[in-house]
Structure formats: structure tokens, C-alpha cells
Simulated scan of single mutants.
Amino acid sequence: MSAHSGQKYGMDRTETLTHALRQAGIRITKQRAALLAVLAASDDHPDAVELQRRAEAQLPGISLSTVYRTLTALEEQGVIHRHQFEGTSARFEHANADHHDHMIDVDSGEVVEFCSERIERLQAELAAELGYDIVNHHMVLYVRKQRLS
């Protein structure tokens, strides 16, 4: 967990994101404040265009370049993670979430988070059998809903 994650400071998500931007030396404009509020409320891995669309609904005049600059600064501060899933634009999520993996529905683009202790144990066992300790990992499964016959 990053020192800027907010948990250390007892902040909510919006405060955490605002604090991180200030730490990066970025001024909090009305547009950025609207974007931060939208990002703080997001639990669905939006991309930059979707974040801009949501923020524009609250406060018109937010440019896509402002969204990208803000997201880059937040990622550099360690409060959000950028995911580049195969065949999609970069998506973002909060960095203070517990470890989880992702399934991407190849038909809808939906991102589904999951955590399996059984998979975590198996990965550690496989690494150990090959003489390694896992330092970090991220699993992404590309899936399609089962068709009922």
C-alpha cells in the first residue's frame, strides 16, 4: 500500500486523490475536482474517455488532455492503477483495494474482479516447485459467458 493511499491519513477517496495531486504539485481546478469526484465514485475500471464523459455530465469543459494528465499524476503518486487489458484502452482503479485478479468478458468488455485463495496457493506452490518466491503478480482471464444449450 502506498504512503499516499489515504488509509494512513484517514481520508476518503476524494481527499486521497486530491492530496496525491497536491503532492505532485498539480493545482486543483474546478474541472480536476469534478474529475476526482467521479474517479472516487468509480468502482468499475473506467477508461479515460468514460471518466471524461462522467465528469462532463457534472461540469462541462473538461478536456481529455486534462483527464490524461491527471490520471498520469495519480498513477505516479501510487493512488490509482492503470490496467492495459488486451484489446482495450487503459482502464483505471483505486490502488488501495485488496489483492484481486480480473476476468475480462471478451464480448461485453466488462471487467470482473475476483479473488481465489485456491489459485493463490497453487501459484505459490508452482513457483516454489521451480525454486522461486512470488514477488508480485496479476492474473487476467479473458472469458465469454457460457451459452445454455
Score class of each variant (00 low, 15 high):
102 H>S: 02
93 E>F: 00
113 E>F: 00
108 S>G: 12
100 H>N: 00
112 V>R: 12
84 Q>A: 12
107 D>N: 11
89 S>Q: 10
90 A>M: 02
105 D>A: 06
79 V>Q: 04
104 I>M: 15
99 H>M: 02
88 T>G: 01
80 I>T: 01
111 V>F: 02
75 E>H: 11
95 A>E: 11
110 E>R: 14
113 E>W: 00
87 G>R: 07
72 T>P: 04
82 R>W: 09
100 H>E: 00
71 L>C: 11
109 G>S: 13
89 S>R: 13
94 H>L: 03
89 S>V: 04
84 Q>I: 05
72 T>Q: 08
88 T>Y: 06
73 A>H: 04
101 D>I: 02
89 S>H: 08
67 V>N: 15
113 E>V: 02
99 H>N: 04
106 V>A: 09
91 R>F: 03
67 V>C: 14
73 A>I: 05
71 L>W: 11
102 H>Q: 10
108 S>P: 08
99 H>L: 03
73 A>Y: 07
76 E>R: 06
91 R>E: 04
98 D>A: 05
73 A>F: 03
72 T>M: 08
75 E>C: 13
92 F>R: 06
96 N>L: 05
105 D>F: 05
92 F>N: 03
90 A>F: 05
79 V>W: 05
94 H>I: 01
97 A>Q: 06
74 L>F: 03
70 T>R: 09
86 E>G: 07
83 H>C: 14
99 H>T: 01
78 G>E: 15
85 F>G: 00
72 T>G: 03
91 R>G: 03
83 H>W: 06
110 E>C: 13
72 T>Y: 11
110 E>V: 14
78 G>M: 15
69 R>K: 08
113 E>H: 01
77 Q>S: 11
95 A>F: 12
99 H>A: 06
92 F>T: 03
94 H>D: 02
103 M>K: 08
72 T>S: 12
106 V>F: 10
76 E>N: 11
100 H>K: 00
81 H>T: 08
103 M>N: 02
94 H>Q: 06
80 I>E: 01
106 V>P: 06
74 L>I: 02
94 H>E: 01
96 N>S: 09
98 D>V: 01
72 T>C: 08
83 H>S: 09
90 A>R: 08
93 E>Q: 05
84 Q>L: 07
81 H>G: 09
103 M>Y: 04
71 L>R: 13
103 M>G: 04
100 H>F: 00
81 H>A: 14
80 I>V: 12
106 V>L: 15
107 D>T: 14
71 L>A: 06
80 I>P: 00
105 D>K: 03
92 F>A: 09
96 N>P: 02
108 S>V: 14
106 V>R: 10
112 V>A: 10
86 E>P: 01
96 N>H: 13
